[in-house]
Structure formats: C-alpha cells, structure tokens
Design a protein around this nucleic acid. Structure first.
Lengths: 241, 241
DNA sequence: CAACAAGCTGCGGGTTTACGCAAGACGGAG
DNA sequence: CTCCGTCTTGCGTAAACCCGCAGCTTGTTG
C-alpha cells in the first residue's frame, strides 16, 4: 500500500508518469497529481506523501522550491526529480537542498521507459539514490574543483548576476571589498572572459562583469530558475536589513 | 494532398501533434517528423514542405533559427510555432524573422485540443495568421511603445547582456559613446532599476548595468534562446572585423 | 615546528560607467 | 517659417570597477 504524488505541469507528461508509476509499482494503490509546485506542496502536506515525482521548471513555483519546503517539513520524503535538462544550475540547486541521508533521484525526461521504471523502484522501494549518468558527470565535475567552480565562486557569480555592486556583495557575504574583487578575478579567469575579450587587438573589449554572467548562462551554469531563486533570497535579505 | 512536417524534440509532444494533425487535416496524407532544428531544416529542404509545425526551444538548434533559414529559402512556407511559453523574447524573435505576407501562427502548448486544431486549419488551409490571445497581448505592448520597449532600446539591452562595453556598442551600432549611454539611461528608466536600487537608504546599491540584464531576464524580455542567437550574431560581427 | 599554499585585507592608480549640462540636428504641428 | 519635442554629441565629474603589490591569517604537510 503506497501513495505516489506527481508534480508536473505538462498534462502529457503527467499522464505518462501516471502510467509509468502504475506499471512500475504494482504495490502503489493511489496516485495523486498536482499541476504546479504550489499545489504540490499542499497535497504533499495534506496527504503526508512520502513518495513524490517532481518536475523542475514549472511556471507557478519551481520544483526546487517546492522540494525544499517539503523536505523541510518531512526530511524522509523520497523525491524523484524528472527534468528536461541537466543544467549545472539545476544539479547544483538540487544537491544544495537534499537533506542528509535522504533518498532522491534525478532522471532526465529523455531517459527510456525502462530506466524511469527502474529509478522509481530503486528510490521508492529500496530507498536508493539514482542519479542519471549525464547528471552524475556534472556533479562530479562541479564538486571536484577540476575545471569546476567552488561554492564561493558560484556564490559570487550569482551575486553579480543579480546586479549587486562589489560593496553590496562585501556587506552581504561579510567580506572586505578587496576580497570580493579577488573572487571576481578568479571567476573571470575560470570563465575565460579574457580570451574572448582580448581577441587580438585591444579593440572590442568586454565588460568583464556583464560578460561573465552571459558566459555562465550560455554554459548553463545559470538559468532562469536559479536566478529566480537567487532573486527571492536577495529580497529576503534586503528585508532583514 | 498535403504534407506536414513536425519539428519537436519531445517524443510525447511529437506524437500528440501527429495525432492532432491527422484529426484536424484529413486532406493531409503525409506527416514527417524531426526531433530537432537541424534535422527539421534538412527535411524541409528535401521535401519542399510548405506546412510546418515547429517547437521553439530545442536542444540542438532552436525553432527560430530553423524557421529563419527555412523562410529564407522558401518564404511562402507556412509555419505554426507551438511553444510552452510566451516570453517576450520569443515573440520578438519570431516577429523579426517572419517574411512579409507570410502566414504563420503562434499557439501555446497549454491551449486546448480544439484551439490547436482550429489553428492548424486556419494557417495551413486558409493561410491566415493565428496568434494566441496571450501572445497577442505582448506583441501589442511591445510594438506600441506604451510601457514597452522600442527596437533601439531592445538592441542596447541585448548588447549589454552580451557583455559589450559602451565603446564597443558605439562602434557596433555606429553611434557616439554618449549616445549609447543615453540609451542606457532610458533603458534603466524603463526597467525600474533605480527604485530597487535606492530602496530607502542609499545603502545597498545595484550595479545598474548588470541589474538591468537580470531584471530583463526575470521579466522574460530576454531568455536563453535570445541570448544564444545574439551571441551568434555577435561572433559573426567580430569575424567581419 | 617549519614551510608552504590558499585566502583575506589595505593601498594605489588606471579605466570604465553613470549622468548633469548644453549645444546642434531633424521632423512634424501650427 | 517658427516652435517644440526627440535624438545625437561633446565636456566634465564623481563613483564604481579591474587589478598589481604586499603584508597577514589560516590550515595543511613533512
């Protein structure tokens, strides 16, 4: 006897998931559906669901936000994230909110039926973590600093993406002005903002700060949902003086 | 006797479209499918298709790019854009590439079956333009300057989003440095970058340039695909000295 | 403990931005 | 033709940004 909650805003994908759950989990007797994050949170609370399949990238409230509040209330909830993309921004976002020892999964929508069903069983029955191969790669790269970004660099990146000044960042992160600028330089380095800047002549130069943000976007280090979340956090911080 | 080409990367949506086309257009005897923009372009060329349903936002080559090259080769092609979102960036992108007098449509994926079928018939049979109500609103707002952005403002926005310096923009657009900065100020005005900057104390100020880009992103004036296109154009311009 | 890498911080200066002020240029309304 | 609004441009200034140099604090390793 098991209950599964599906949070996904595309009706086609939702019904596909519904079928997949039925096929993969005969022991599941109830499937409920939510068409966005807000409803998802509410249903999770009402039904005390312990098994959730969650889309990232929904209009009303994205999957990461929803998962965060759900996990905050009930950290043992098992969540399978089912996403179109493997942007580093998503991967980072998810791995930042997963509670210690929680079982979760990250499967791409492009995965085969078979893989999806396997993941469903592994996570919901066996309480194992299942991370899509492709996603795994990113995770490795971003945690091991080889060619990846440390948390502090990522933090700085987000801050300039939000449009904060050096001074504001310094205040927010409790650093001196110079330290902030140091981190910026590291960031510029890693993002290769210089090469594209210099080219050959010192002709068409870039504004490093703005360019860094763009490059990060193009490399999927940032995306809309990450920005949205960061902006919300920023507003929160601004309230708290 | 009619041929329809479907360009869409999500298999679920693709087969849904296939069915919808069959149901709405009995006079259509052949339906071909492409799973990304690159393949789409090729098939369109090979089959000389005059009727296309096109997703925006695909991994390999996005719908706007594909549509552009297709229309360049055969401007009388009828294209129905079928998209998840109505970002201003998409709407603007589409309306920039549609040839004079061409029949095209823009329908959201959230539209009902009925509306999709109606749009298919209107465009492919009657050669009429069909624009989703919601999208229409944006279009109006963005062309009429009320509360919207002029082309020159939008141009500047893209340029700073790309990370160009004032000087570089001036060269690229054939303006003086000061003119560029004027336009920037207009832009900052319209994007309301000041209010959020000043707040109450002149304490936590924003970097206007970076902030403008973020705000534009959050308001869907820009999105990944627009950035991608702009970046490609920029590189092209850099080549041409 | 000594040695060393990594990160924080202040100082100083060259460059880029943001923007007020004001003088032309252009185009439509009266 | 004249008046007026919009757009462009130059000049000048205060602020913000980019960054090399150098002194300090840490945590790590032999």
């Amino acid at each position: 006897m098991m209950k599964v909650l599906i949070v996904e805003d595309d009706p086609l994908h939702r019904s596909y998931l519904h079928e997949a759950v039925n096929a993969a989990l005969p022991e599941c007797d109830t499937v409920i559906e939510a068409e966005n994050g807000t409803v998802g949170e509410k249903l999770a609370r009402d039904h005390k669901s312990a098994h959730i399949v969650m889309d990232l990238q929904m209009a009303s409230r994205n999957g990461i936000e929803a998962a965060r509040t759900i996990w905050k209330e009930r950290p043992e909830t098992r969540i399978l994230f089912w996403s179109n993309y493997s942007d580093e921004a998503y991967v980072r976002g998810v791995s930042r909110i997963v509670p210690d020892g929680a079982a979760y999964g990250y499967v791409l929508k492009s995965a085969s039926d078979e893989r999806l069903k396997l993941a469903l069983r592994s996570i919901f029955i066996e309480s194992q973590c299942v991370i899509d191969r492709e996603v795994r790669g990113l995770q490795q790269k971003s945690l091991g600093q080889t060619n990846g970004f440390t948390d502090s660099e990522y933090e700085i990146l987000v801050d300039i993406a939000l449009g904060l000044t050096d001074r504001a960042i310094a205040r927010r992160r409790g650093l001196s002005l110079r330290s902030v600028q140091n981190r910026l330089q590291q960031l510029y380095d890693k993002l290769d903002v210089y090469q594209s800047a210099g080219d050959d002549h010192e002709d068409g130069r870039f504004n490093l700060r703005a360019r860094a943000v763009t490059v990060a976007f193009l490399r999927k280090l940032l995306n809309y949902s990450a920005l949205e979340r960061a902006e919300a956090e920023l507003q929160e911080w601004l309230e708290g003086k």
